[in-house]
Design a protein around this nucleic acid. Structure first.
Lengths: 195, 195, 195, 195
DNA sequence: AATGAATGAGTGTTCATTCAT
DNA sequence: AATGAATGAACACTCATTCAT
């Protein structure tokens, strides 16, 4: 399996750096090859084409994150705690790797529609995680049961995503981790007064 | 002023159609010119370059929407009603023009970073509108006053944006307008049970 | 006759300034029109096309110079004095008008071959003047009669031209007029020792 | 070093032919590539841009000529013989390659000012050769010592250049080599009678 | 497995010229 | 005579991908 060979990861890590530093449209295959320390042609022994590098990059980084979070939240019993953990780990992942944050929030979105559709496939796993948290919460009486679940998970994902994007666009000039409680609180309670 | 000449709008409308139908990267200037019924060179009498068409497109369509919504919400007294109106009119704008929806939610995001920064300038007006609604709501006792307002407005914008994008990616196969009450409800109350 | 209308000269003078200041390839018709204080289209009432402006420019400036010099040298009796006068007046013309010097020595040579051939027609008058001086000199015993007259006139013209071009390329940083005696002396006597 | 690879020379030779046959402004990169038997993109592996082809062309052809002539004239002892050799070899170079003659005398002069300045750098080597010949001649008593050397070398270069250009403009319809003695004679002795 | 020289398709923009007013 | 908005042809250069070694 190519995914497990060292050069596979080597090229993906090179891609993250090159894209973060040069922007999506200035991240030529030859630059990535140079950064990875391989010849241009070698890239094509591990990836079908340039797009495949980007998809693989997203799968490796976000896909693994989703798999991991899926496991991690089993530790927590309550849905509110599971949700807190998702937000926290999501923010942590990107807070710890500014290059990756720039790539996922800004650069990769400049890709064409097909690539974005494939990226969305990866994100479906994320939405499944959110779904299961919502289910747990409703079953356990932590969440009400009269809301549109699909909308709720779009709210959760949209809010997290927008928060991170704004942070990246502001050049990480404030602490993303500090926002975890506020985001969690707003998602659960909204900003209205409880009756 | 060029912005008021008929050909200015004519070219922008042509651009929306061509970009929606061909995708951002296949929307050649010559295609746009042909659709607009003008010569290639005429484009450059009204726009500095191709990027300028896209910025102007966004300014015309979203910028005007924001200006209008700013006025319209003065009709409503309560913050919850103002918010409802924003969601409703935002969804309506894009629900009524599927081409425009595809362009704003998918295609225009493929532009380079500089263009996206300019687009963000336009969106700052939107965030200001949301801010003022939140202020009104807090002042009037409709909203609680112990939440991070910047996060709240990112939640509102992120949720609306994500909801529309998902709708566009699903090829408009359900009724976007039907989601207005659900989105409004979730934003105000969250999905937690009120204590 | 268009040549005598005020706008004809107005446009030519504008062309000299625009070409000198912007270079041949940045001297757009619209710039020349603006400098001349007329509309773009008006140019085409006086000139067949852009090339025609440049030919006319050269004809007006150098053609008139040649006609004048042809008359002026009749004042002098001796061929050496006639030659001196030619060099002197040629240098003076360009020394007095740095814009014109830049245009004739550098910018106009960037034109295409056809234009250069037409410019050469104008210069044929110059060569005729030089021919007649050589004839006079030979007849009067001032010049020897065993040299190739065509080569001699190419030497005269080539030397004058090269001297002016070098002066323009050195940004007129020395006094061109001071070189008249030296050029005259070298042309008549060469640099060999006379036997 | 790219300059020594066969394709480098191959492309330059193709450029000479294409420019001579089509003129400077009709010498598209794709035409040159086709003539050279390489792909358009290959050109850019050897040259920075189109202008770089032209500079390199001049450097290869004239630069090498100058280096060679510098060596060759050491064979001759007398300055008059050295000068004769320069004229002869210069005429021979261009007499033997009509394409090259057309390119250096007519086409390359249509280039923009910056390119011409770089061409002038190459020609500085030529002027140095002429200087050293003049020095030798003065030191050896062959040439007088009361003339402006800068003017003299401008006379030599200007005369040679004008003679070749006239020959090219007359479509090589007479024998350039036959003019060598006449040019040499005029430069040394001028056309005046020796006192 | 790895290389890297070679390929060649694809497009935004300028500006001389026209012509309806 | 004069205008100036509109025209549309023309081209250098990049870079993802291949394939002989």
């Amino acid at each position: 399996m190519k995914r497990n060979k060292p050069k596979f990861k080597q090229i993906i890590d090179a891609a993250v750096i090159i894209i973060a530093e040069n922007g999506y449209h200035n991240a030529q295959v030859s630059k990535i090859a140079k950064q990875a320390g391989v010849a241009d042609g070698t890239i094509y022994l591990y990836f079908k084409n340039k797009e495949d590098i980007l998809i693989s990059l997203f799968q490796e980084k976000m896909g693994q994150f989703i798999e991991k979070i899926e496991e991690d939240i089993t530790e927590k019993e309550k849905a509110v705690d599971k949700l807190y953990m998702v937000i926290e780990k999501h923010f942590k992942l990107l807070s710890d790797d500014h290059h990756l944050a720039a790539v996922t929030q800004l650069e990769l979105r400049q890709s064409n529609k097909e690539l974005r559709l494939k990226i969305n496939d990866v994100l479906k796993g994320y939405l499944r995680v959110l779904d299961s948290i919502l289910e747990t919460g409703i079953a356990g009486g932590e969440f009400r049961d009269n809301f549109d679940r699909r909308l709720a998970r779009q709210m959760i994902f949209g809010t997290i995503d927008e928060t991170v994007t704004t942070w990246v666009m502001n050049e990480h000039k404030y602490d993303l981790m500090a926002l975890v409680p506020g985001v969690h609180d707003l998602l659960i309670k909204g900003f209205g007064v409880s009756s």
